[in-house]
């Protein structure tokens, strides 16, 4: 079965802007889900609020499009009430790390058996491009008109520190690697976190000299560095270029899981 068969064809095309990376990540996630062979009846797709969180609405399976930031708490309830269901959560950087930050660390801590895919576009897309907890220092947004001054969250590191069993980061350029990482996440019991850097040409790119969708894809291509190389450079005391996106698998472990199949 091809990932295309998982879409609600009657709802396409999506509401996403031209060249938005969210669609790519949904393709990869659905490819991974069909590769692991889950049946539609056993998967529930959950999300919060944001452009990225519209994903479940396009998938032909049970899906819960919840309130802003709360997807993981809803998903926790579903998983614990019926551990036979497989949970896949789509979320955005604002949804997950700002308003939903507390649920995020606690879902990691509990190591609830679910796979969480965060489309990190470094911006609040749906509300028109305000700064988020992952907006890089200096980047322009409608609420950081003079450049973002706050520090950012490293979402993957946060998930690891909080206790997730699996964590990986890729980008919408690395479709094969991203698919494989999501698949590994689906197959790893416990909380699996996959951070997917995505382009938001409308809310982010337009204000940060990455106007065309392909500009951002090109940025991902040229600025990504494998985790192994990054670690080596650090160990050797060498300089890592700023703006580097470190990609790869960061953790895979088997801490005790909450809500595993009974």
């Amino acid at each position: 079965m091809n990932f295309m068969d998982w879409y609600r064809a009657d709802r396409l095309p999506t509401i996403f802007c031209v060249g938005c990376g969210n669609g790519t990540v949904i393709n990869c996630a659905l490819t991974a889900v069909s590769e692991v062979g889950w049946k539609r009846e056993e998967v529930v797709f959950v999300s919060g609020i944001g452009c990225s969180s519209r994903a479940p609405g396009y998938i032909d399976a049970d899906s819960l499009h919840t309130t802003h930031g709360r997807a993981l708490a809803f998903a926790t309830g579903i998983k614990l009430a019926n551990p036979d269901l497989q949970l896949v959560v789509f979320t955005g950087d604002g949804d997950l790390a700002a308003i939903g930050g507390n649920h995020f660390i606690h879902a990691c801590r509990r190591n609830v058996d679910m796979t969480v895919i965060c489309m990190n576009n470094q911006i609040y897309g749906m509300t028109g491009g305000q700064g988020s907890p992952t907006t890089p220092r200096g980047a322009l947004s409608t609420t950081t008109p003079y450049g973002a001054e706050e520090g950012t969250f490293d979402l993957t590191a946060l998930s690891i520190a909080a206790g997730a069993n699996f964590a990986a980061r890729w980008t919408s350029y690395h479709v094969k690697e991203l698919t494989n990482a999501i698949r590994a996440g689906l197959e790893t019991p416990g909380f699996s976190f996959i951070e997917a850097a995505v382009q938001c040409p409308t809310g982010y790119g337009r204000r940060n000299r990455l106007r065309e969708p392909e500009d951002m894809i090109e940025f991902f291509r040229t600025h990504s560095m494998l985790r192994q190389k990054y670690d080596r450079l650090l160990a050797e005391g060498k300089l890592v270029p700023p703006d580097t996106i470190v990609v790869g698998e960061f953790v895979r472990r088997d801490r005790p899981v909450l809500g595993g199949k009974k």
Partner: peptide
């Protein structure tokens, strides 16, 4: 099986088949 398929996986609007 699908060989390459990168365009289809990347296409954000599920337009390639």
């Amino acid at each position: 099986r699908t060989i390459c398929g990168v365009c289809q996986l990347t296409c954000p609007d599920q337009a390639i088949r």
